[in-house]
Design a protein around this nucleic acid. Sequence first.
DNA 1: AAAATAGTGTCTTTGAGACAATATCAG
DNA 2: CTGATATTGTCTCAAAGACACTATTTT
Lengths: 245, 245
Amino acid sequence: MNSPHTAILVMPQTTVDVVIFTVLDDALQVLLVQRAHATARTTEPYPGLWALPGGFVNPALDHDLLACAGRKLLEKTGIVSPYLEQLGSWGNATRDPRGWSATHAYFSLISAAEMRLTKGVNTADVAWFQADEVLQRSPHTPEKPLAFDHQHILQTAVERLRSKVEYTSLPAYLLLEPFTLPQLQHIYEVVLGRPIDKSAFRTRMLGANFLSEVGTLTTTARRSPMGYRLKNREYPMVFARTFIR
Amino acid sequence: MNSPHTAILVMPQTTVDVVIFTVLDDALQVLLVQRAHATARTTEPYPGLWALPGGFVNPALDHDLLACAGRKLLEKTGIVSPYLEQLGSWGNATRDPRGWSATHAYFSLISAAEMRLTKGVNTADVAWFQADEVLQRSPHTPEKPLAFDHQHILQTAVERLRSKVEYTSLPAYLLLEPFTLPQLQHIYEVVLGRPIDKSAFRTRMLGANFLSEVGTLTTTARRSPMGYRLKNREYPMVFARTFIR
DNA sequence: AAAATAGTGTCTTTGAGACAATATCAG
DNA sequence: CTGATATTGTCTCAAAGACACTATTTT
């Protein structure tokens, strides 16, 4: 039924891309890398444009797709155990000018502070951008859209993140532990783009029993807030309802 | 940064697999195909085992991954516009004995009755199996596990379906239109494997305003039930809460 | 004491579970 | 008419929104 021999000759290229989110300056931000500028010797597509971190699977280095995504993320951020979830895959004949290609996209949540701690990893061609600003880019705006179909992948990632924030504890991965409930609520509000009622928020978070207290913290606040840590960093908490309104 | 030239030589194989669900005989069932038996001339892996319908992307036929999944589904069921959603991708060095491969998995919901209408499509090597029975297979059971990592892909598909049934209108795609609310509730109960309160079910379905009445139907029932149709077959309804308990 | 932030209480609303009651149709 | 199925009503409960109130700490 399958024809492996003839198929191998026209096989699509396989890549992995990672959408790395953080919250910085009260905004949802995404890590982008700038593609090499055009030279006489290279034929790299989309020269000089910004793109999601990613590239070809390296069968010699990568045990599987997730490991490949983890490697790309480590190379750009120095972070070893981030929250990393598969987003989806995109494959067609035209997304890469070099021919039929398919990319496996992942999305990751990290604390920007955590990344700053890892010196020497960031290079000049890596930077944070506000997700909403990037999404509004078009060929007519000053800042050009991302390379390949990364504009579309980012759009899907933002929608997925905003959707899951409504009913999961995902935003906790955007903070360093320990964190306070006001800090966590602020992250929720930044990602969702709207305020949440304080009382309802606390009732939900503390009632779900996925946080453990670690003693009061000393922050810039007047009254010392309680610090919390995730009981289980492997899986986010899933609530039975979304926030309403 | 990427090295396309060297990478092409070791590029992973790209395939698409489809998990096709239906409800038949009061059970969630999945469509499987039997792989060719071993002969002296072929080197096909997993000869004689059952597997998810799928195979290599054909760049000459398939505009993109979704089209490829739709083609596989059409070939096995004769159905043109099913519900088809991306499930995820699986890729590593060992899932196919021929080498590093990555598959893009989709899952589809169809009415078994709709498929019976398309004669001549089904072949002897295609059959429905109870999803839960297949999931319980191991190397030690009489029926052997599926080929490749399809056991694992099916597991993920069933979990995803059962999860989404808790808060979406997905089961409607398992029925032919028009359908009645008791029929729809029955499909929900079969997929979830537990009863749902009749009153709460009707309040949720009718309150969400995603169904349109199409007049009372004549069924085997005593009192004639109201028939319904989806207002929008493109996207399922997403409810703000899961069913509880 | 005042200001600012953390945290709690109260009331209302929404929608689900439990389950009883009513409506309609085939025979 | 009767039984089976469809549909509605009532009561209770859980959790969220609105928003006022109390608690703690720094200055």
